[in-house]
Design a protein around this nucleic acid. Structure first.
Length: 777
DNA sequence: CCTCCCAAGGTTTTT
DNA sequence: CCTTGGGAGG
């Protein structure tokens, strides 16, 4: 392996420094993954057993990519390198040993945010906590932060002291933890916390893993929280061979408990640490990179670094101010289309935004245009209702102690078991220290329900039968048996909602995932599948081969790169978000700035920033001035630009009022913004000269525009259906599932034509033309 | 027990 | 704007 020709001197240094603590400060685009890959390869070349190497990432996607690259460089033996995310690593360890901690079984289930929320809800109710005064969200966040800081309920109660709200939260925390334990469930944060707890409680287990993981690598170290820090520290305690890679300027997960001090103080914690800075950027042109450097320079307390590139200047950055979100989306769509017709590919583009809500107008614009796109994030596949239902069945089959799952599906499809019955059963279960399912399947439970008792048997029967088959037959067969028995598809169809087809597709997709899992896993088990499913993020499923424009939040974009990046919604109040502008903690706005830095540095060749004069936020029209971050980019890197540059104009109230007369969120930002001199300057900038005519009219999104848009969309649908639907009312058609039938009606729907068909066998169905894929006979 | 309708509240970011 | 949850009626 000729490392010298593959890596630059700094990168080489990082590769050769195999022993002891190492901090690699890897600037954006500096070839971090490359270094990690070759470092692992080099370790093995030096005689280290692959079995003794561990690489930890945050997302499955990052882990997958690293796995792929290491496999391709290392060859034989690479499969025994432990490459995994924090969460799956902990889950894997706990699957083996959690029974050494009290009251947990190794077949625990993992609760996602939704599950957590409903437990919190129950708990708050039980403790008579007024969720109007103390929001469930607050409770969840508090508990999560506590866990990230490794505070158990006792410690938290101490910390809460006599504070009214906090002590209530502490009560919830106790009860919440009890519930989870009873359900044999762990939430995301528990995975880490319990694992650390296990390491601390059981020196034998810890020593075992310390002996195994003699060389540890941690990626994106700037985003680690205290629990993750402890996890890594404990493992590395014996060998001290810990190599962390990160960039303090890309720390963007404080809200999730990430502690930037972990990276900033690394040298204090490991005084013998070797620090290596990777400062050559291989990704972006110098216009883009220098803009990023100029923006991030406004932050304080950074590790000094000087990122440079020899890629040349490239084209200037474009900043464009549009009238509203629609115009903004259309501009972006048209720009992409224009470049595609000039030879670019759709996958060269990404549109990044601060909040998921912004994806809507972009999506609509792209649908209208017929542009292939893909949205990352938003509603997670696994949080869709039908998926959660099916998974709840699987969980109930796998782990009889998960009351939440069981309660969810005991009356889905409807079996006439209502809230009253469920409450009775749960109370009975709680009183007798048994699970909900045990209560439901017991003779006593049945008697409890009186007249409704007979409703239970069919459900219990299904679960019992499936449980007895679990392990005996393949998972796919088990799944199919289950679907047959619960008649879920029938249930969905009977609901007759307009997205039935979508939901059926999703279930098919879930089945595909199960099949894939069963084929790829060494020893496929139901538990294993459920675990894999619980720990996936949306970003994990982004395939590189798809030729589509990617739409995602700035957070999801970390670690990715695109030839041409659009950053939409560059408005002060949206990005930086108004919460952080109002915040009295200066660090909050710095975190937003880091997000800006991450966004800019995703771009290889071109960067386009856009903002809208007005946009709808939560049903209110807001008018935000251009983002201060845009103004932090020096003029020389901006080409054609709509940016109102630092023009001194007084700050008038007109500018901070929303059109409907309600004071916008932004107005609250006044006083605190003045904390920083830079900001004050920006705030006083009035986009006067660039103010479009519509500014004074006080209308929301102009009506004619919406109508125009709707018409265009209708036209688009008509065009595609008129030519390609290939059938009209009265035609006989064939459906893959329902067989043959007659088209009764074709009605325009919001996105697609709704076709009503009277099938010979299956009766009358309403479906979307796009999904049904009907064939004229 | 289920379904429909209206009011309120929510959005920052996610493993 | 859009989703969720609570309350009333069938």
């Amino acid at each position: 392996m000729d490392l010298e020709s593959l890596l630059n001197p700094k990168q080489l240094e990082a590769v050769y420094q195999t022993e002891g603590p190492v901090l690699i400060l890897a600037g954006a685009g500096s070839g971090k993954t490359r270094v990690l890959t070759y470092r692992v390869a080099y370790l093995i070349e030096q005689g280290v057993n692959p079995w003794n190497i561990m690489a930890i990432t945050f997302t499955n996607k990052a882990a997958g990519e690293m796995r792929e690259r290491i496999d391709s460089v290392v060859g034989a033996g690479s499969e025994s390198i432990w490459i995994s995310t924090f969460h799956s690593s902990c889950a894997r360890i706990l699957r083996r040993y959690i029974d050494r901690l009290e009251e947990y079984d190794n077949n625990f289930v993992i609760y996602d945010t939704d599950d957590t929320k409903s437990v919190i809800k129950d708990v708050a109710k039980k403790l008579n906590i007024d969720t109007k005064r103390i929001k469930e969200r607050t409770i969840m966040n508090e508990i999560s932060s506590a866990k990230n800081e490794l505070m158990d309920p006792e410690l938290y109660a101490e910390y809460a002291g006599s504070d009214f709200v906090l002590s209530k939260v502490a009560d919830c925390y106790f009860e919440y933890q009890n519930t989870l334990r009873k359900n044999n469930a762990l939430d995301f944060d528990d995975l880490l916390m319990k694992c650390v707890e296990l390491f601390k409680a059981d020196s034998e287990v810890l020593a075992g893993y310390q002996d195994r993981f003699r060389y540890i690598c941690v990626d994106e170290y700037q985003d680690t929280n205290t629990a993750q820090f402890q996890f890594v520290s404990l493992l590395a305690q014996a060998s001290r061979n810990i190599c962390v890679v990160g960039d303090d300027d890309q720390s963007i997960y404080k809200f999730r408990g990430a502690n930037i001090r972990n990276i900033l103080d690394f040298e204090q914690i490991y005084p013998e640490a070797k620090v290596i800075k990777l400062e050559q950027n291989y990704r972006s042109t110098s216009h883009i990179l220098d803009a990023a450097n100029a923006v991030i320079a406004h932050n304080t307390g950074r590790k000094v670094k000087n990122l440079w590139t020899d890629r040349g200047e490239g084209v200037p950055i474009v900043y464009k101010r549009l009238d509203n979100a629609w115009e903004e989306s259309r501009y972006i769509t048209e720009e992409i289309e224009r470049e595609v017709s000039a030879g670019a590919e759709y996958k060269d583009f990404a549109v990044l935004y601060r909040t998921n809500a912004q994806s809507r107008s972009l999506e609509e614009s792209m649908i209208m245009d017929g542009m292939p796109y893909r949205i990352v994030g938003g509603v997670n596949f696994y949080s869709r209702r039908e998926i959660k239902d099916i998974l709840a069945y699987l969980k109930t089959i796998s782990n009889g102690r998960d009351d939440l799952a069981c309660r969810r599906i005991i009356n889905i499809p409807k079996r006439g078991i209502g809230q009253t019955s469920i409450t009775k059963l749960q109370t009975y279960a709680d009183e007798h220290g048994i699970s909900f399912y045990e209560a439901a399947s017991s003779r006593e439970g049945e008697l409890l329900l009186g007249r409704s008792a007979s409703k239970l048997a069919p459900f219990v029967n299904i679960i019992d039968v499936l449980r007895s088959r679990n392990g005996e037959i393949t998972l796919t067969d088990l799944f199919d048996d289950m679907m047959d028995m619960i008649k879920y598809e029938q249930y969905l169809e009977d609901l007759n909602e307009e997205d039935t087809e979508d939901r059926l597709d999703n279930i098919e997709e879930l089945r595909n995932k199960l099949v894939t899992y069963e084929e790829s896993a060494g020893e496929p088990t139901l538990d294993g599948f459920l675990e894999e499913v619980a720990l996936v993020a949306d970003i994990d499923n982004v395939g590189e081969d798809e030729n589509r424009v990617l739409l995602m939040t700035l957070h999801s974009a970390k670690g990715l790169e695109f030839k041409h990046v659009f950053m939409a919604g560059m408005e002060d109040g949206l990005f930086p978000n108004s919460m952080t502008i109002i915040s009295d903690n200066r660090e909050d706005i710095e975190e937003e700035r880091r997000l800006m830095y991450v966004g800019i540095t995703r771009a290889m060749d071109q960067l386009t920033l856009t903002s809208a004069v007005q946009r709808m936020v939560r049903g209110e029209t807001q008018r935000y001035p251009v983002s201060r971050f845009v103004l932090e980019i020096p003029d020389e890197y901006l080409g054609e630009s709509d940016a109102p540059k630092r023009k001194r104009v007084s700050f008038s109230t007109d500018d901070i009022m929303s059109t409907n007369g309600k004071t916008s969120v932004f107005s609250g930002a006044g006083p605190s913004v003045k904390d920083t001199s830079i900001s004050t300057d920006i705030m006083s900038t009035k986009p006067q000269k660039y103010r479009p005519a519509a500014y004074k009219t006080g209308t929301d999104i102009p009506k004619p525009y919406i109508m125009e848009a709707a018409a265009a969309q209708r036209k688009a649908v008509t065009a595609s259906s008129g030519d390609s639907l290939g059938y009209i009312v009265g035609d006989r058609v064939r459906h893959t599932k329902y067989g043959e039938g007659i088209v009764l009606e074709i009605a325009p729907g919001p996105r697609d034509y709704q076709v009503t068909v009277d099938f010979d066998g299956a009766g009358r169905k309403i479906m979307y033309a796009g999904f049904a894929k009907l064939q004229k006979i």
